[in-house]
Design a protein around this nucleic acid. Structure first.
Lengths: 230, 230
DNA sequence: ACAAAAGTGTTAATCTTACACCCATGT
DNA sequence: ACATGGGTGTAAGATTAACACTTTTGT
């Protein structure tokens, strides 16, 4: 069979991080091309004989040096033929979460600069990356309510108030502290440590830890994580 | 910028239909190539300057002549480099639902034959299509519980027992008829018509209709469709 | 002593589950 | 009259939602 096809395949990663009670997105400044000096998602072309997932991991490593905590395919953007002015490019977008303690970046080959931007201070983005980001944010918001992905944005041990804040911030909602704590603890996947956090004000607070093994076990048995608020 | 990339882009569609209280999948027999005479999902290569969604619709039309009721992107398969023995091909898979009254097929150019197969009698499939199908089935099952997609598998008007059966069959579960009916009716998106179905035995049953407009309105206001069983 | 955030229980309301009999038709 | 599937209600249990005061620390 003969086949001439001029479509290019790229991957992009929407990398979310959380620090200072803010949701952040990792962007890199374009070095070349039409969008030179504009900010864009982490990403690039897939190599021949390269698995998509390997391509994403490679780009993450090359452009940011970051180690992500959670990575899943989000959506493939290929309906807007002119999303890239150079060629017909489809992009397989991935959704990544980074532990807030690992926000150290290395700017490298493809990027003049890599920087975290708070979700409500996103500059103009190259290509259709603004759209992609919007969809990723929705996915994060909905995922928070039915999978314990929030923990992938927090350090290994965290205060209950951190978790609470994370939910409030990302879902842009208020929550009842007592009911929230009861609900989370009822799943049995968050454990108290015997450490205390270094909160400067108020009563010292215990640190908690997410028990992933336990969650995996429970979720195999069909026990669901689910959080809804009034 | 220069770019040589040998990756090909295909689309595949997993088309589900429902009739005789069975869930069916639409397959086509391959005409050419390594997998000649094997069954495969509807699909093919994307054309240059063709949107992904247009490619799926074109393939559906060319290979089956079918009009689908629901279509959404499922997942992009591109981690197994050798999923196609000819080239490095990534496939953007789509998930389609067909109204059971429209199961008429036309076998055409790319397909020697197109046929519906009950989900539990799927033959060997070409490429990695068995895996793709498995993932699509999971998506259908989970989607049934949080979006009213079941109606896209039924004719415009249907008996309550049809809907009930559809849920039992696809989710492989038993349900309480009374609670199910109460739940569905409580959403206010299913209306009684003044028609009766032509059930041969037992008491005549009313036909019902799904009110999509109403669902759309309610779902904008954040009213959720959700079905869980004991 | 006061400011700041952590920690904790109870009650009413709502939703979910379990469960069984009568109804309308065809044969 | 009987077989078949359609149609319906209620009560107990579980879950959720609303709500405010005490505790521990630093200053």
């Amino acid at each position: 069979m003969e086949l001439k096809q001029e479509i290019k395949v790229a991957v992009d990663a929407i990398v979310f991080g959380y620090s200072n009670n803010k949701l952040n997105v990792l962007l890199i400044k374009q070095k070349y091309g039409t969008f030179k000096n504009q900010w864009a998602l982490v990403g690039g072309f897939v190599k021949d004989k390269e698995a998509l997932i390997d391509a994403v991991n490679r780009e993450l490593l090359e452009e940011t040096g970051i180690k992500v905590n959670y990575l899943e395919q989000l959506y493939t953007f290929g309906d807007n033929i002119n999303r890239d002015p150079r060629f017909h490019v489809i992009s397989v977008a991935y959704f990544a979460l980074v532990n807030s303690t690992k926000l150290i970046l290395k700017a490298d080959s493809d990027a003049e600069d890599a920087k975290w931007f708070p979700i409500n201070q996103i500059p103009d983005l190259a290509f259709d990356h603004k759209e992609i980001l919007a969809i990723a944010l929705k996915r994060l918001q909905s995922k928070l309510t039915y999978q314990p992905v929030g923990f992938d944005l927090l350090p290994k041990t965290f205060l209950f108030s951190d978790l609470e804040n994370l939910y409030c911030t990302i879902l842009e909602t208020e929550i009842d502290r007592r009911n929230f704590r009861k609900k989370i603890l009822s799943f049995g996947i968050v454990e108290e440590t015997d450490q205390f956090g270094n909160n400067l004000k108020g009563r010292p607070a215990k640190l908690f830890r997410f028990n992933k093994q336990k969650y995996n076990k429970l979720s195999k048995d069909g026990i669901f994580f689910e959080i809804n608020f009034a």
